[in-house]
Simulated scan of single mutants.
Amino acid sequence: MKKEKAYNEQVNEAREADPAAADAPHGAPAGDTMAEEAADASDTMADEALSVEEAVATAVAEWRDKFVRLQAEFDNYRKRTLREKMELVETGGRDVLLAMLPVRDDVERALDAMAKSDDIEALREGVRLIAQKFTEALRQRGVVEIEVKDRPFDAEEAEAVARFAAGEERRGRVIDVVQTGYRLGDKVLRYAKVVVGE
């Protein structure tokens, strides 16, 4: 404690005599040499701080550029996808309508033939061919009939509109189809309306 007090007094006296020498460490040169070393160290630290700032600014600029490009790419992707979806909906409907037009033409020809002909069998055959052509056009687009008659009733494919006493062997089975059901791929497009035995 006494040694510390004595040392502090010596430092204070030295400061009063020569402030530059008092701040210098023991054995270190005082005066101009010390100032030069401090200036050099200050310049080195300033250069290092400046290079770190430049590196950070460069990295920030690169990441900002990447972010802006990525955002623009995503926006373009979103717009392109939306446009493709709209075209798909329009084109999908167009394809189905184009497939139905020949059937419509056949119906017109059948109506003209009915007005001019009395041959019932020929007219029946013509209507049967038109129905067959229409069914084939639907099948080519993935639309198929749901076969439910004489099968156990399945609420995933059909809607029961009536119940009919049909005996024990036909209980829970489809007795009659009031309206045909259709499936598009794996999904039900329209449920069949059926009469179920009880």
Score class of each variant (00 low, 15 high):
residue 101 L to C: 04
residue 77 Y to G: 08
residue 69 R to A: 15
residue 178 V to E: 04
residue 33 T to Y: 13
residue 30 A to C: 09
residue 132 Q to G: 12
residue 18 D to H: 11
residue 192 A to I: 01
residue 121 E to Y: 06
residue 111 L to G: 14
residue 94 R to L: 12
residue 61 A to W: 01
residue 152 P to L: 13
residue 172 G to D: 07
residue 61 A to Y: 02
residue 28 A to N: 02
residue 8 N to S: 10
residue 177 V to P: 00
residue 5 K to L: 14
residue 138 L to E: 00
residue 82 L to T: 15
residue 144 V to R: 07
residue 72 A to R: 06
residue 77 Y to M: 12
residue 99 A to H: 06
residue 93 G to P: 03
residue 160 A to E: 10
residue 94 R to V: 07
residue 18 D to A: 08
residue 27 G to C: 00
residue 158 A to P: 03
residue 89 V to R: 04
residue 131 A to E: 13
residue 124 R to V: 09
residue 179 Q to H: 03
residue 116 K to P: 06
residue 146 I to Q: 01
residue 188 V to Q: 00
residue 143 V to R: 00
residue 195 V to F: 01
residue 175 I to M: 02
residue 37 E to D: 12
residue 59 A to K: 04
residue 82 L to D: 15
residue 41 A to R: 07
residue 30 A to R: 13
residue 41 A to K: 04
residue 162 A to Q: 04
residue 193 K to A: 07
residue 3 K to D: 14
residue 141 R to C: 07
residue 103 V to I: 07
residue 74 F to G: 10
residue 6 A to F: 07
residue 110 A to E: 04
residue 184 L to P: 01
residue 90 E to R: 04
residue 76 N to G: 09
residue 187 K to I: 06
residue 95 D to Y: 14
residue 71 Q to N: 14
residue 100 M to Y: 04
residue 69 R to H: 14
residue 86 M to D: 07
residue 157 E to L: 15
residue 198 E to G: 07
residue 143 V to E: 00
residue 107 V to S: 05
residue 124 R to Y: 09
residue 152 P to N: 13
residue 35 A to K: 04
residue 37 E to P: 05
residue 75 D to H: 03
residue 6 A to N: 09
residue 143 V to A: 01
residue 189 L to E: 00
residue 52 V to N: 09
residue 178 V to M: 05
residue 43 D to K: 14
residue 182 Y to W: 02
residue 64 R to Y: 10
residue 182 Y to C: 00
residue 113 A to D: 13
residue 189 L to D: 00
residue 33 T to W: 11
residue 63 W to Q: 15
residue 58 T to V: 08
residue 6 A to E: 08
residue 52 V to Q: 10
residue 24 A to Y: 01
residue 38 A to K: 03
residue 19 P to T: 10
residue 31 G to A: 02
residue 174 V to R: 00
residue 134 F to W: 10
residue 10 Q to C: 09
residue 2 K to P: 09
residue 85 K to V: 13
residue 76 N to F: 10
residue 149 K to N: 01
residue 130 I to P: 02
residue 173 R to N: 15
residue 27 G to N: 00
residue 96 V to S: 09
residue 16 E to Y: 07
residue 160 A to G: 10
residue 131 A to P: 06
residue 164 F to Q: 11
residue 144 V to F: 07
residue 136 E to G: 06
residue 18 D to L: 10
residue 89 V to S: 09
residue 132 Q to W: 07
residue 128 R to T: 15
residue 29 P to A: 15
residue 107 V to W: 05
residue 108 E to D: 15
residue 128 R to Y: 11
residue 4 E to C: 09
residue 118 D to F: 12
residue 193 K to Q: 12
residue 113 A to L: 12
residue 1 M to C: 05
residue 136 E to W: 05
residue 196 V to F: 05
residue 184 L to M: 04
residue 95 D to I: 15
residue 59 A to R: 01
residue 75 D to A: 08
residue 183 R to A: 01
residue 79 K to D: 10
residue 36 E to P: 04
residue 107 V to H: 03
residue 39 A to N: 06
residue 139 R to D: 02
residue 77 Y to A: 14
residue 152 P to I: 10
residue 164 F to E: 13
residue 92 G to W: 02
residue 35 A to S: 06
residue 29 P to D: 14
residue 170 R to C: 07
residue 133 K to Q: 12
residue 22 A to S: 11
residue 185 G to C: 03
residue 99 A to Q: 08
residue 176 D to T: 05
residue 112 D to G: 10
residue 123 L to T: 08
residue 10 Q to T: 07
residue 124 R to T: 11
residue 72 A to P: 04
residue 2 K to S: 13
